[in-house]
Write a protein that binds this DNA or RNA. Structure first.
Lengths: 175, 175
DNA sequence: CACTCCATGTCACCCGGTGCCATCAACTAG
DNA sequence: CTAGTTGATGGCACCGGGTGACATGGAGTG
């Protein structure tokens, strides 16, 4: 993973071959594909962790919270984790933003995340329709805030940016 | 495009090679790639039309409408178009839902759609933050309603399903 | 010591995707 | 009518991502 990110950063994602990554990591191409399903996936191994943290936050939400508040409760542990990885997140975001196929992968990871959050909501008794919309809304808020966070310099601003986006969403859908 | 959808439907997306599609269409693989940027793209040529219709609806929205209402105005022409293509949409959705790489493409098309809707909102004077959240919300409503629409039998139900999702979103984000 | 297990290497192969040049028909200028 | 131009297509070689099958070798285990 480190080898891959170094190379992507140095010479671009497209210009880097899997054989090069494997070589720098002291492996063969074949072994690379035993660890990562495809070349893109090497940049997304962190998504499991994101999902785990988010669900933790959801589980910790008070029983009487509204669906969106439950989803938003997942943002706490997530913001905490990212605060220590601002530099890494910026480099990674630069790579992803420069490559449509990586953006596609990012979007489907977010979609899967929304799917598991929806399942957690349904588990709590929220109806399926409301659950999927609340989960999607929460993930969108995260996505938008994340994009803003990597564009600016304060590593601790993530939580604030997410709250701002959340408020903005509430006011936009209010009328 | 017809050749591709036939083959995907008959034998699956993965199991179909571009050479086969080209052969059935009376072309060569090389020519296929002059018309479509990649194999996935053959299923997404309709997304331009979707975007065009949606922006038409947005342009027709009253000047004093709220951001989300402006976005929702795009759903009218969209629903109208899809009403005549229920059978096609079901077949296509079946293919896409069976293949993660096609879902990725679908998601990025929706993301691009949200981006152009956002731009249209900004053009109307909506602030960038509100615009992106409203656009994303509208696209999510479309996506969720679309999934429900292809799961049931009434071709004319799309408009109603979108309105239901929209209301659901409003009530979920209300508290 | 023999055996099993598991990670890795090696190799051949398929297919998506591209660059380059050849071909050929339609059209245009003289 | 001819020569030249343009644009769509075919043909071909090539690259790189991704996979199946088998060989190898080292760590544990009886």
């Amino acid at each position: 993973m480190s080898a891959a990110i170094e190379l992507f950063h140095e010479q671009g994602y497209e210009a880097t071959t899997v054989a090069e990554i494997a070589e720098r990591a002291g492996l063969t191409k074949r072994t690379f594909f035993r660890y990562f399903a495809d070349k893109r996936e090497v940049l997304f191994s962190g998504s499991d962790e994101l999902q785990r943290l988010w669900l933790e936050g959801v589980a910790a939400a008070p029983a009487d919270a509204t669906p969106l508040a439950v989803v938003a409760a997942g943002l706490d542990p997530v913001a905490e984790m990212f605060a220590e990885r601002h530099d890494f997140a910026r480099i990674r975001a630069g790579i992803v933003n420069a490559n449509p196929e990586l953006q596609e992968r990012e979007l489907i990871k977010l979609q899967n995340l929304a799917g598991t959050i929806k399942a957690a909501l349904v588990e709590r008794g929220v109806c399926a329709n409301a659950a999927i919309l609340a989960a999607q809304a929460g993930v969108t808020v995260f996505h938008v805030a994340f994009a803003r966070w990597v564009e600016q310099d304060d590593p601790t601003a993530f939580r604030r940016l997410m709250d701002e986006s959340l408020d903005e969403l509430r006011s936009v859908t209010a009328a």
